[in-house]
Nucleic acid binder design. Structure first.
Length: 271
DNA sequence: AGTGCGGCCTGTCCGC
DNA sequence: TGCGGACAGGCCGCAC
């Protein structure tokens, strides 16, 4: 799924509806997600009011006075808001029944997503603790990327997709940002000059920002909280465009598996 | 310790 | 039309 722009789009969509509302009940129809959905969530969340909906990397955090729900959408997850009377679909695994006839549902056909519950600071949770900087924060820039790449023997694309390096950059936007900055996805991360990392950091922020403004990218599963798709797909320059002409030079775009993920690039424009 | 790989799941698409 | 295989937006856990 869902890379950072899709998670942020979801956050912005659900936050106004959830904030200030009390959770009446949690229903778990399929507890077998990436990790089992904890029974404590069902017992301890109801009666709590949602105070904020935060995002850290690709994790969504529903903050209440009694604890936080940690949600990850995996590859195929989406959150939808619906009137409580609307029947749930076959892959709606978890439901949060809210005040005033509203229900939030997690739909996740592939079940790579996660729903967890913590009574402590969610940012200290073992899954979130080691995450790298937010790509849209000022901590993230070319000098940071250059510094942490020193001595690494890994290609630049899996390097920027490593959540400990920078969080939220998945396969689509890694491909797009590398194209934008003219860097070949197979180049070794430790052999890239700081000036080129500056271009890459700028490209990552630009691509993610534009995707958020477009409501994310819908390839297959992703939908917003109201079921509508994101429109960034129309703006993808290289992703899923193997064999099609490069928008910059016209040469056919290449597809190659790098770090076990499909990579798309222009062998003329990217070095 | 860093790196690469397998595996988790279901759905879809493509070639035969 | 049916079937097998490849592939899909993530990322943990395990070998080496």
């Amino acid at each position: 799924m869902p890379e950072l722009p899709e998670v942020e789009t979801t956050r912005r969509g659900i936050a106004p509806h959830l904030c200030g509302r009390t959770v009446l009940r949690v229903k778990v129809h399929q507890p077998r997600l990436r990790w089992p959905v904890p029974q404590r969530l069902v017992r301890e969340l109801p009666g709590n009011r949602v105070e904020r909906v935060d995002r850290r990397g690709k994790y969504l955090l529903l903050a209440t006075a009694g604890g936080s729900v940690i949600i990850h959408l995996g590859m195929s997850g989406s959150l939808r808001l619906a009137p409580a009377g609307k029947p749930r679909g076959p892959h709606d695994h978890v439901e949060w029944v809210l005040e005033r006839g509203l229900v939030l549902r997690l739909r996740d056909p592939r079940r790579f997503g996660a729903v967890l519950w913590t009574r402590r600071d969610p940012r200290a949770h073992v899954l979130l603790r080691g995450l790298g900087p937010e790509p849209l924060s000022s901590r993230f820039n070319g000098s940071y990327l250059h510094r942490v790449s020193q001595g690494r023997r890994i290609r630049v694309k899996p390097f920027i997709m490593d959540n400990r390096v920078v969080t939220g950059v998945g396969n689509i936007y890694a491909n797009e940002a590398l194209f934008e900055s003219g860097i070949h996805p197979g180049r070794m991360a430790g052999r890239i000059a700081e000036a080129r990392y500056e271009l890459l950091a700028t490209a990552i922020r630009k691509v993610l920002g534009a995707a958020i403004r477009a409501g994310g990218t819908t390839l297959r599963d992703f939908v917003r909280e109201d079921g509508s798709p994101g429109y960034f797909r129309h703006d993808l320059a290289v992703y899923d465009r193997g064999g099609l002409p490069c928008v910059r030079c016209g040469a056919p775009l290449q597809r190659q598996v790098i770090g076990q993920r499909s990579s798309y690039f222009c062998s003329i424009c990217q070095r």
